[in-house]
């Protein structure tokens, strides 16, 4: 069983009458990229803020690197880097000066770490330019540099692609994937734009109105989102034989109720139906099934259009 970096147990957060988090359970495995998906106001930022120590839970607990209480939990937060909501910058300071603050704060003796971190995020050549004059993409990258300054074991990134152009999104994704692959950095990343996460995340958590709807790995999600033809005929054995002969590379499953799942059959639906029909089979059901991540999430939160 893989090591857990962050675990939330029955985490609840109430702001007066508003229930921001409702008994959330969440587990982030070491070395994973955990895509935290939910609409605006679903509770993603609240959970991340509690994990980062910025907000106190109403009930429930957070465990970080095995520490769940008091001073140990506070100290464990030295192993994380965060950007919550907006990049936290001093607008009157340059990128180097901004990082100098955090170098001093974290007690990092090696001054060259600033240069290394700026190079990593592609801001090494900004010189004395004040961060107020940076584009939104540069600010996001500087925010990420601050989070990476102390060489953390885990990054908590709340909507880090906000304000980035499409190229910036791709660059950020590649940077995070690279860090994850090369250093084993664990990443908890939130977004309400699912397509930003589906090429990167290894695990997913879907949150809606303060409730965790589902947690699953990327492969589980892929299976759930996989497109297939759902076929029900009067003679399944014959149907499988026909499919095997007619579609040599076909991947299929026979369900206990006798129905067949024919994966990748979307594009070949016409030829499949012809094959079955010409074999004299009586087709009771012939339905394309499967969905994109967006559709899956929409269905999960009760979006009737995709149900």
């Amino acid at each position: 069983m893989s090591e857990t970096v962050l675990r939330a147990r029955q985490l609840t957060k109430r702001y007066n009458r508003h229930l921001a988090l409702d008994r959330i359970d969440l587990t982030v495995r070491k070395g994973s990229i955990y895509g935290f998906i939910g609409q605006n106001g679903a509770g993603k930022s609240t959970l991340m803020r509690i994990a980062a120590g910025l907000a106190h839970p109403t009930s429930g607990s957070v465990e970080l690197f095995g520490a769940s209480e008091g001073a140990k939990l506070v100290t464990a937060r030295r192993r994380i880097g965060t950007t919550i909501e907006t990049p936290a910058l001093f607008p009157h300071l340059s990128a180097t000066e901004n990082l100098e603050i955090y170098r001093l704060q974290q007690g990092i003796r090696n001054r060259s770490r600033i240069r290394e971190t700026l190079s990593l995020v592609g801001l090494a050549d900004t010189g004395s330019k004040k961060s107020a004059e940076f584009s939104m993409g540069m600010k996001q990258r500087l925010g990420l540099a601050i989070a990476l300054m102390s060489e953390p074991d885990m990054l908590i990134l709340d909507e880090p692609t906000n304000g980035l152009d499409p190229l910036g999104v791709v660059e950020l994704r590649e940077l995070l994937r690279g860090l994850n692959r090369e250093t084993g950095l664990t990443i908890l990343i939130s977004s309400h734009i699912l397509s930003e996460l589906d090429q990167m995340a290894t695990d997913y958590g879907f949150i809606h109105q303060g409730r965790m709807l589902e947690q699953l790995s990327a492969s589980e999600l892929q299976t759930k989102c996989r497109q297939y033809l759902h076929i029900k005929v009067d003679n399944p054995e014959l149907a499988l034989s026909v499919i095997r002969k007619g579609l040599l590379s076909a991947e299929y499953e026979l369900e206990p109720d006798g129905s067949i799942r024919l994966y990748g059959g979307f594009k070949r639906a016409g030829s499949v139906s012809s094959l079955l029909f010409s074999a004299g089979l009586e087709i009771e059901q012939f339905t394309p099934v499967g969905e994109q991540l967006e559709r899956y999430f929409s269905r999960l939160i009760g979006g009737a259009a995709y149900a």
């Binding site: 120590g53 506070v74 965060t82 936290a88």
Partner: peptide, 14 residues
């Protein structure tokens, strides 16, 4: 307002 307090608050100091 600038969000800097969030970084300091999560820096691992009490």
């Amino acid at each position: 307002g600038s969000g800097v307090m969030k970084i300091t608050g999560s820096s691992g100091y009490s």
